[in-house]
Design a protein around this nucleic acid. Sequence first.
RNA 1: GCGGCGGUAGCUCAAUGGAUAGAGCACCUCCUUGAUAAGGAGAAGGUUGGGGGUUCGAGUCCCCCACGCCUUCCCA
Length: 981
Amino acid sequence: MTDDASKPQSVRDYRETLFLPKTDFPMRAGLPKAEPKWLERWEKLNIYNQLRAASQGREQYVLHDGPPYANGHLHIGTAMNKILKDFVTRSHQMLGYNAQYIPGWDCHGLPIEWKVEEQYRKKGRNKDDVPLAEFRKECRDYASHWLDVQREEFKRLGVQGEWGNPYTTMAYSSEAAIAGEFLKFAQSGQLYRGSKPVMWSPVEQTALAEAEVEYADHTSTTIWVRFPVSGTPVSVNLERASKMKDASVLIWTTTPWTIPGNRAISYNTSISYGLYEVTAIDDSDFTPWSRVGEKLIVADSLWEEVAKTAKVSGFTRLADVDASTLTCAHPFAGEGYDFPIPLLAGEHVTEEAGTGFVHTAPGHGAEDYDVWLANGYKDIPETVGPDGAYYDHVPLFSGLQVIRTTGKKTGKDGPANAAVVDKLVETGALLARGRIEHSYPHSWRSKAPVIFRNTPQWFIALGEEGDKNSLRAKALAAIENTRFYPPRGKNRLSAMVDGRPDWLISRQRAWGVPLTLFVRAGTGEYLQNEAVNARIIEAFKVEGADAWFAENAQERFLSGLVDDWEAYEKVEDILDVWFDSGCTHAFTLENRENLKWPADLYLEGTDQHRGWFQSSLLESCGTRGRAPYDGVFTHGFVMADDGRKMSKSLGNVIDPADIARTNGVEILRMWVASSDVQDDMRMGPEIIKTAADSYRKVRNTLRYLLGALQGFDETKQVEPKDMPSLERLMLHRLSVMDEEVRAAYIALDYKRAFSLLFAFCNEELSAFYFDIRKDALYCDPLKSPRRLAARTVMDLIFERLVTWFAPLMPFTMEEVWLTRFPSDTDSVHLRTFPDTPTDWRDDALAADWTRITNLRRVVLGSLEEARSAKLIGSSLEAMPQVFAQDAADHAAITAQAEGAEAEFLADVFITSQAVLTAQEGPDNAFRLGDAPGVSVLVEKAPGVKCSRSWKYFDAANADASYPDITLRDAKAVREWDTAHG
RNA sequence: GCGGCGGUAGCUCAAUGGAUAGAGCACCUCCUUGAUAAGGAGAAGGUUGGGGGUUCGAGUCCCCCACGCCUUCCCA
């Protein structure tokens, strides 16, 4: 039989009688244009404040913003960070908390100062000629400018927060608070002034903390230098002494300019040293500095290499050497360097490179300093000034710069190295020289090399090992009481705090909060006076930290409160900006009304283990004895799609502003939501495309719901008990999803939340539920219980899906929500996740459906086979005969089919009819390897094709008035005809 | 160099030491044309970075190597 033969002469087009999904919601989003309009609307409605008002009395959840630096445009990393934060606050708000978010900015510090200085240089002005107040004002303006730029960029990302009232480290109230926090350290005695070698940038003329340097390749001049042995103790026998006559201890260094600062030579007691006499030299290429007959003391393991470098072609090893018995002279002895050079034992000396002896300049290296002090010496020579030039008192080299600090060659070697080398040649001390490329610390701002330089600086003491009351011990204990996401962050932060040196907090800069200290002239002790402190803080609140630099500040703050106010010196150093940011908890969480301290969460990139997580922890532990946070969330860095760093030179940089312009921010947000943010993420064109594809999928699922729910209202709802099994299955799934999605949001696991939602849309809605229920939705009489039940469930799905997605995709969910419920004032973001009745959960029913969908799987496979054999095209042309041997499968179907098994199965399989048989299928039946006991034979469905539902049916059963459609369709059409005349 | 972390399909992600390593997307093929710049199905795609080891059994635990990222130190 063919379709044509069974059809009546004039075929009615039933399309208009169908209920097809209808919606104005466009398939294409046009996000780049639409998003700014949503932002405008939210701003107009003042959603953030509405939420605050509506959340009064709810439990608070506070994510405290780590302040970005107010300089430059956003990059993909900062964008990702803020989007993640937005996930946190939005999801917690919808979980039922009062989740506030106060964005903040870090405004002080070297990078801004550096930029402002650059501007001056361009105008031909020297920074030192600019009055301090004017300079600070310029810095403030510069920070304000970038703060505004960044604020707009952050808002464009859809990040919800109190943008109109952010915190900044440069607000007067903040500057007052920072000074107040600093003075707490001073009052409690945790602050001290020490003189030790610190990393110093001559170009910026400031000390730098670890966090402010970066390592880059640098070519250094290396020198091998003879230090003549000047004496051996009397206890050494004469033979030995004579051998030592004219011998030299050989050292190697990559920093010739530190030779004037040399005061000792370090050796290691576990290294064996030998006295070598040079018997021949290789002068074929050039005349080496080594001389036949000279005696050198070098580590035995390193001698050969040294000999090679020095062109020594023949030698005799004369004797073992006990380094501890030696004293040397400085190579420049007789020219102002007339002091003995002792040999000091030090564990830091190794045999990896060099000569086994380490030239020791206590003012220019941490280990040098330590060894020097450990041997009872106290004076630390000061050889190089803040400008990186030798002090005037340094013989031979006064005024020469180590690193150029001005002009085009800024950052390159100054004349110091060359002058020292020349002088070494002149005095005959140089044995050899060379060049080495190695990684070397550079300033993160000027990119110029830094030097180690001894200078008095202010430190916060971390405390001695074993001291349970030390700041370090308190911080470590606080880490133990903090929840880390992921947990490995705990180890990381602990290890860093455990191993870090005292906190160097003074900088010789201008733009920041000063160390508000007065030092007693002569004694070096700093004033600890609560009344003075109060005066300072009060002044800062009104005038900002500029008050410190105003004329007569000293008199203003001290007079009347101390005996002799002129006997003090006002400290002019500026606080490390990490100290500023370490105080954000104090002036934001504590000082603002309606916030709480400590924060629930700090969320930053893993680099902040050494930055903000740590500065905040130390600051808070030093002043309050505990961490300012209960939880720390760390995310990785954004890499290019090949896993390498993004860099302009490689051309693999993805700019978030570009994505906003071309794809829309929502795509960026989806990328964040689908990425494993706790590891490094990858970003590139293909990855954006994947996110955009996912977006379309989600959008279409919601679009279908909107279309299907056209005209649906609550009065048409069906009670769960009156619903078909399939609808109750979907309710069950919603209850499970509710639990899982909430759990994912609580665990800050957005990837999980997203993949749950995404998979639900794809696998359970689009490919399963919607597909099966299309027939009932389109063709059933409008009031059929099945159709009403389906729409009821779709409504419940809609309500949940939209809110569950809302924290991740705020723009699109708002659009979806308002398409369904038009309003000038409403917003999906004012809602919370809907309560989901626990009695929707039905595990027994779900278990039955697991069996049914397993059968469905086999049937779909069999249909595909029939399709490729050209037996059928559409699945409605088929009547699968299912052979299921397992009685439990039958029981499941019986339980869920509600008395109409064949129709039930046909619906589930989306076929016109279906037959279920309890026996083993024939050999030629279709089977799947992982579904034993189930097989399917596909036959063409008998009967005629219904002109309306396209299902095949027995025409003998047709309604006389509508002979070409099924009875169900006839009923629907009759209703439609009645309604439409 | 030290230390930490990481790697699973073209892409994004799963997988208490336990069966033939799973999903989605993309690609390809087919169906549908009543979600249509959509929808459905199927196929293909893997030496789980490489190599050893422990184990009845390893993506998972141990060791080594190479790689990437972070961190730290640095050739004094």
